[in-house]
């Protein structure tokens, strides 16, 4: 099964709609609730990151018998130092993002915690691609 979503940068009212939809689908498929929670938290963190930092993004999800593969590609500033961005507490979030309760530098470490495989590639000034794999 494949699912695709678009994300608009800066539009916090829409953040989480893809995660919500994926949660419903995984519930219908009978996936273990703890596994669903990990998947949707990682996806929600990634959605919020795109809304908070990028101009726009695309989410492509592939659900297979034993795993879910999620690819989030955005057009935005990119991440100059991915290792630094993975450190808990490091953040470049704006005041607006912090006022929404995010931007504490917890997103990427939390994505790592909630995924079995995580790959982040970025071109500064152009894009960031996050690939997450969770096994059921």
């Amino acid at each position: 099964m494949e699912l695709n979503f678009s994300i608009e940068g800066g539009d916090f009212t829409q953040a989480g709609q893809a995660s919500s939809r994926v949660k419903k689908v995984l519930k219908q498929l009978g996936v273990d609730p703890k596994c669903i929670k990990s998947i949707v938290i990682a996806l929600y963190e990634a959605e919020v990151n795109v809304v908070a930092h990028a101009h726009r993004g695309q989410i492509r999800i592939q659900i297979e018998k034993d795993k879910i593969i999620t690819i989030i590609e955005d057009e935005g500033p990119g991440i100059p130092d991915i290792a630094l961005a993975m450190q808990e507490g490091f953040s470049t979030a704006s005041k607006k993002v912090r006022e929404m309760g995010f931007g504490a530098g917890m997103g990427l470490p939390n994505i790592k915690k909630n995924t079995n495989e995580l790959q982040i590639d970025s071109v500064v000034g152009e894009s960031t691609t996050v690939k997450m794999v969770n096994y059921f």
């Binding site: 916090f12 009212t13 953040a15 989480g16 995660s19 919500s20 949660k23 929670k37 949707v40 938290i41 929600y44 963190e45 919020v48 929404m100 309760g101 995010f102 931007g103 504490a104 530098g105 917890m106 997103g107 939390n110 915690k113």
Partner: peptide, 30 residues
Amino acid sequence: LMSDVLTLDTDNLLLITGMCNLQTIRTAEM
């Protein structure tokens, strides 16, 4: 801080917060 709420792995939880926006509800859902 919704970022902190998203790191919890706890059932039967009551969230006490002054962060009152749509993302608070989304965070609770996730």
